[in-house]
Amino acid sequence: MTTDRRERTPGTPTLADRYVHAATRRLPEDQRADVADELRGSIDDRVEALLDERPGLTPEQAEYAALEELGEPERLSAGYSGRKLRLIGPELFPSYVRVLKGTLLVVPVVALVVATIDALGGGDVGSVVGAAVWTAYTVAVQVAFWVTAVFAVVERGPDDDVRESVGAVWTPDQLPELSRAHRGSVTDLVAALVFLWLFGAAIVWQQLNPSVSYDGEDVPVLDPELWTFWLPLVLVLIVAEMVFEVVKYRAGGWTTRLATLNVVLGAVFTAPVVYLAASDRLLNPHAVAGIQEHWAEFDPDVVGLIVVLSAVVIYVWDVVDGWRKALVAR
């Protein structure tokens, strides 16, 4: 039984017609008709063979089965044209990942800058966090998109010079430094930096956006007198703690030297806080009075005690944790 599908009425394209069209439409003009005719014939050959092998099949079922065997027309088309069926191939992939990681490092920096500007401009906590998250998301998406787009273009350009310039050609010079290969935990670093940043931002924010009303005006919670020396010192120490966290990360985690440094730095950080809280100089007297207007039992001494205890507990825990990890890591 022979069915020549070419003799079908032109008005009703069969699945095979659609298949041949899909598989050949992206081929160069001069090859298209020839490849289409041959592919058409091969499909018809297969349909005929299937009808012989399995007499129960209708011609439509045989055609369906033949096309299913042949698979995705895009793949066939790529086979004919030599086109690559991938966005970024295995040659470029390692340098793609390397560049992507490198450029994504700008995300936290940009987010931090935007959040800081927003905080200094008088944004509330919600707006600062929102700005940081939204900026981080937008920048990350943009960076990932453009890096991917550039690599996808390079993947399609066979020019060796271009590939070399994006690092697709690996040389031993690109080996990472050993100390960098054994970095500390990124999670620890990010958590510490975010915590420190929030701490610093809260100090600045409570001054810029006074939240306690007293005597008809809004006053900051911390004593504004402290800005002459103590609060700037705390902010400087926060920055020092951030630097410490980065150094620790780059060193690959805790070492005994870092643990020792941590004892000193932690003491310098904790001492002013404990001193101010213990000597009752931390809170703004106007804010205390303002709070007591609504909540008579509010006792600044209790707040001072809580701050002292928290600061000491955090300090001791941090010192012990640092030493424990440094000794385990040895």
Partner: peptide, 12 residues
């Protein structure tokens, strides 16, 4: 060999 490999191979 799959048909979708062989046909393009012949052309190549």
């Amino acid at each position: 060999v799959d048909a979708n490999t062989l046909y393009p191979l012949l052309r190549r």
